[in-house]
Nucleic acid binder design. Structure first.
Lengths: 200, 200
DNA sequence: TCATATTATGAATTACTATTCATGTTTAAA
DNA sequence: TTTAAACATGAATAGTAATTCATAATATGA
């Protein structure tokens, strides 16, 4: 299938391109990938149906583009936050916290990324497997140093993703309610990850 | 939209009904809800296209039926396993373990249930909110008794679902690899939930 | 064995959506 | 101010899939 995006060459073109992307993110979030029709996108963006095909050969290529944007964005966000912290282990904790915080701040992203499982399993696997491996690399030294329990790092990687997942879930369900105590939620989650649920 | 399922009245009718359901579960799991066409279902089941509409008015009603089946199944499974255990707190742990084990044993269910988020958000919310509340009821007394850290039980509920979620994810990605050490995985996960990841 | 309800068929119809393309407008550089 | 490239339009076309329905087979039980 055709997959190539046409990068616009003028200021106007770029504006239309970005309008399509932003509008689509909103629709994918609200209605999901499959229920979002090209017509919905062009109508919401206020452009003609044909204009869509000036930049994207089909819906899937646009989805992939959006997925990559999120991937870059979240990695950049984590890298930035971590760069301000001293100490390898502290960096690791900060990374986890930022990851969770990101899920909290960007339910759009969380929701759209997760749907890749139903759009193209390969996209999903690439996305999350990459993430898991990245965490594993960071966690292993912390165990060697005795800063962490001797847990299976692959499992922990997936647990962290599960936790971010649940956060996205919770934010989703809480939409409309009071969401002012975000820092508090992140703190609680970190504390649970740290010390566990049960006393021994 | 029409929503009523026609319950078959004869042995043959029931067989066809069940064939449709089982075939569909398999297809929803492999291809997802939206990519599964009615024609795919009837072809896979080896029945005529019209036969589908003898029992289900549309795909969504069938999906809802399947979702309910899973819901009942998992609740029954947990209730059963818990009934063999003495002590309220031990029961609670057994419930969590069974829940996780269930996700591990039934990636079909996990995958199909989760897709409800993209099919009809209301279905998703009802499903998981119900689960969260159920956990909360069980967890609160354990905190009062000092058997658990004083954590936000709503948060813990969602974490548990996130963890079950990640387990489903991991099983999904590992499909084809060696999955003999299932008990081992459940044990590890329980240990992490119990004592946390970091040492203090 | 007859009459009726139930189940099954699959071609035809209907509904919907993606995609194309002939035509027109805008932009920017020469 | 010309003109070629870029951008935009939306009606027309093409393709896919859901759903109906006239017809037929099968099962039940009186």
């Amino acid at each position: 299938m055709e997959n190539n995006i046409k990068i616009p060459k003028t200021r106007n073109g770029r504006a239309t391109f970005n309008l399509i992307v932003d509008t689509t993110i909103d629709l994918f979030y609200k209605k999901g990938y499959f229920k979002t029709k090209i017509k919905d996108i062009t109508d919401s963006a206020g452009i003609a149906a044909g204009t869509f095909y000036l930049y994207f050969p089909n819906k899937l290529s646009l989805y992939k583009y959006i997925l990559m944007q999120f991937q870059h964005d979240i990695r950049r966000t984590i890298a930035e936050s971590v760069s301000n912290v001293k100490g390898r282990f502290e960096k690791e904790k900060e990374g986890i916290k930022t990851f969770i915080q990101y899920s909290l701040d960007n339910p759009h992203a969380y929701n759209i990324i997760w749907e890749s499982l139903y759009i193209d399993k390969k996209l999903f696997i690439d996305y999350y497997d990459g993430f898991a491996k990245r965490y594993e690399r960071g966690l292993n030294p912390s165990i060697k140093d005795g800063e962490m329990h001797d847990v299976d790092t692959e499992l922990v990687s997936y647990i962290l993703m599960g936790v971010a997942n649940f956060i996205g879930l919770k934010v989703l369900l809480d939409l409309g309610k009071n969401n002012d105590d975000i820092d508090e939620v992140v703190e609680q989650v970190m504390s649970i990850i740290k010390t566990g649920i049960f006393k021994d």
